[in-house]
Design a protein around this nucleic acid. Structure first.
Lengths: 141, 141
DNA sequence: GTAATCAAGTCTCAGATAGAGACCTTGTGC
DNA sequence: GCACAAGGTCTCTATCTGAGACTTGATTAC
């Protein structure tokens, strides 16, 4: 157990995913995968997508479904998702005007991986809580 | 196309995932799945996990692999992941002391869903970029 | 005619958070 | 005793988040 990894770039089985991306010509700062993951991994966007997975919803319905989101953050999350083609915003010409948000096909295609993550969280939440408790205990030594 | 969704909670095929969680007794503010997803979905943690998936690494090696992370954020991300039981921090009694970070079994178990998300991003990045361009165009009308 | 209401936002401001980078600690080589 | 290396911490500023007041434009209420 005394052997230290040398940090030699030629040592590992793979040169790391980030290095691969760099080899593909992506600067790490501009890596499109990172951009997209940042979007997808943002605090509220996941929850908005999960809500819309149950069917199209209107602005205030989303506000009610996500009781602890502010109007501002909901607007911003919806704009981000619309901008990335994950949902479609439809304005109905009623009085007063109604706005409906619905997943696009691209948005639907994301739900598989996203629900995979949600399932992981559901399955392993007890393990995570146990680890948290253990960490607290180890800190109070 | 004039029919507006009524927002009737009894109308949908499912009462929404969030509503299900509420029915299970989770206040939305304290929903453990949300807590865990927030952790897992934080900006840097995903990238740290991906780097460690290639094998254990030391602090400065991670710093080199993620050129645009600051020391402070790396420290914080590593502490968060350790606290949630996703990685293990090992101090070697050398001079100067070396610290190695490695995924735990729990961390490894997360890689499947996480790589699913990365694959989605890789597969659909062109579609996302196309949507972004289209959105820009539609805004400049 | 004026006021209140509703949907779907926008605006402002305070407080929390992220990032840059200087500094710290312990030990070795020169 | 000076510089350097590892693995951080500390401080300061800039950005972002969230609460909630305000907007807009048409409809009904008085």
């Amino acid at each position: 157990m005394t052997r230290l990894p040398a940090g030699n770039p030629a040592a590992g089985p793979r040169p790391s995913r980030l290095a691969e991306w760099q080899a593909m010509g992506f600067a790490p700062q501009a890596c499109p995968i990172r951009t997209i993951l940042d979007q997808v991994a943002a605090k509220w966007t996941v929850l908005i997508l999960l809500e819309l997975h149950d069917g199209p919803k209107r602005f205030n319905a989303l506000l009610r479904a996500l009781p602890d989101i502010s109007r501002r953050m909901l607007t911003q999350g919806l704009r981000d998702l619309e901008q990335n083609g994950l949902l479609r915003r439809t304005v109905f010409d009623t009085r007063p005007p109604a706005v409906e948000y619905a997943l696009t096909a691209l948005g639907e295609s994301l739900m598989g991986p996203l629900l995979g993550l949600v399932d992981w969280a559901t399955t392993h939440r007890e393990a995570v809580f146990a680890a948290q408790r253990q960490y607290q205990d180890s800190q109070s030594d």
